[in-house]
Design a binder for these strands. Sequence first.
DNA 1: CGAGTCCTTGAAAGGTCTCAAGTCACGTGG
DNA 2: CCACGTGACTTGAGACCTTTCAAGGACTCG
Lengths: 246, 246
Amino acid sequence: MNQTIPAQNISAHSDQHCCNCNLHSLCMAVSLDMTELSKLDDIVDRSKPLSKGQTLSAQGDKFQSVYAIKTGSVKTYTTSCSGEEQITGFYFPGDLIGLNGIDTGICPDSIKILETTTVCQVQFEQLDMLSVELPKLRRQLLKTMSKEICNEQHMLQLLAKKNADERIATFLIRLSNRFKVRGFSESRFRLSMSRHEIGNYLGLTVETVSRVLTRLQKNGLITVENKEIEILDSKALLKLSNGKED
Amino acid sequence: MNQTIPAQNISAHSDQHCCNCNLHSLCMAVSLDMTELSKLDDIVDRSKPLSKGQTLSAQGDKFQSVYAIKTGSVKTYTTSCSGEEQITGFYFPGDLIGLNGIDTGICPDSIKILETTTVCQVQFEQLDMLSVELPKLRRQLLKTMSKEICNEQHMLQLLAKKNADERIATFLIRLSNRFKVRGFSESRFRLSMSRHEIGNYLGLTVETVSRVLTRLQKNGLITVENKEIEILDSKALLKLSNGKED
DNA sequence: CGAGTCCTTGAAAGGTCTCAAGTCACGTGG
DNA sequence: CCACGTGACTTGAGACCTTTCAAGGACTCG
C-alpha cells in the first residue's frame, strides 16, 4: 500500500478531456485555446481514483512525470537521511506538482494521497516538447515553478519568524484563500490532513497544534469540530497571521 | 544608496564574453556549444563592479531581468507587511537569480550586494525567446528553478526540525560545498554576510549564532576569526548537521 | 583616531517540546 | 448493528532551548 503506483496502473478509461475540465483556469491549461487544449489533452493521462495512503511517486524514483490534481488532495514530503519526514506542501485541485525533479532527474520528494484523489499525469519530456510549440504553456510551466518558489519563501518566513499561533493562523488563511479560488467555501472546510501532518509542515508538535486550535476557538476566531474548520473572524485571523503589531 | 540601480547604469564596456567566462560550467550557459554561447552572449549585459549595500532590484519592482553572479556575493530577502526582513538566500558566482518574478511579473524579493560584485543581466523576455531555439538553455532554466525549489525544501526541513547547532553546522557545510564546486577552498573561507544576516536566514538571533560559533570552535570543529572560517573536522560537522543520532 | 556598528558574553524570561494520561473517533469483525 | 481496539486528538505539568535584555569589547571606515 505504501508502494509507488506502477504507471500502467494509474490510468482510467474515461471520456474526460482538458477542454471540458472545470479546472482549466487553474492548471497548466490556463488560457490555451481549443486547438492548443486538444494538443495538451493528447499527452494527459487521467488516473482512476486513488485512495488515502497511496504513494503517487516516491523520493528517489526516476523523474518522469508531473501531476495535476483533479480532485482530492495530496502531500509532498522529503525524508532525511536520519529518517525524519518533512512535509513540504499540501496540494489541491488545479495544482501542478512534480516539477522539482527536473534538476537531478530524480524525484526529490514523495507524493502521498490524503483522501480519495484523481490526478492527471503528463510525461515531462512530452510536456517540454509541447511547450516549444505553445508559448503560453511554456510560460505557464515557468509560472508554476516561480510560484512554487515564492510559496516556499513564504514558508521560510513563517518558520523563521512566526510563533505557533501565527503559524496556524497563516496556515488556515492560506487554506481558506486556496479553497476560495477553487470555488469552495472560504469560511468552512475540512482538513484532509491530520494534526500531526499540520505540525510537521509548520514545524510544531501535534500537541502545540491542538493547543493553538483550541485557543483560537476559545478566542472566537474559529470553530473546530474534529477535521471541520469554520473561520468566524477572518479579519482577526489575518491580523494574527501577520505577526506582532507594528 | 539603498535605491535600486537604474538599468542603464549597470552596464560596463568590456570585452568579456560567455565563451571565455570561466563560470560557463556553472551558470545557464552549461553545455552550450560555441554558436549557442554566442547567441546567449548577445543578450547578456555585464555590470560594472557593484558595491556592498547596493540594491540590484527591489521587492515590488516590475520583473524584467534575471541575473547571473559573476564575482562576489549577494543576498535575496523579502520584507513582510509588518516590515520584518527575511533573507531567502545567499548567492555566489555562477548562481542565476531572479526567476521567481515570472509568476506575478513583480519581483517578490529584493537583491542586495554583500561585497564588491559583478553580475550578468539578461532580459527575461529575450532569454525566453532564445530558449525556444536552444533546448539546452530551456532545460537549464527549468533546472535552475527546480534546484531552487529543492534548496528551499532543504531550508524548510532545517527550519522546521533542526536546533541551533545543527542549523549552523548545515549552513557551514553547504557553504563549504558551494565554494568547493566553484574552485575555492572548501575548508577555509570568508563569510561575506554578517552574523545578523546568518541568524535572519537560519531563524536564529545574532546572539545564538555567535554562541554556536564559539561553541563549535571550543569543540574543535571549526576555527572562527571574525569573518574567516576554517573547518577543522568536516566529518563531525557533517554528522552534527544531519541531526540527532539514529 | 573616534564614532558607530558588529560581535560576544552573561543572566533571566518565555515559548514550545517532552512526557504522561485520558478522551474521542473511526474502522473492523463478530 | 454494536462492541471493541487502535490510532488520533486533547489536556496538563515540568524541562529545555532559544530569546530577550543588558553591557562590554572589537573591528571598520571615514
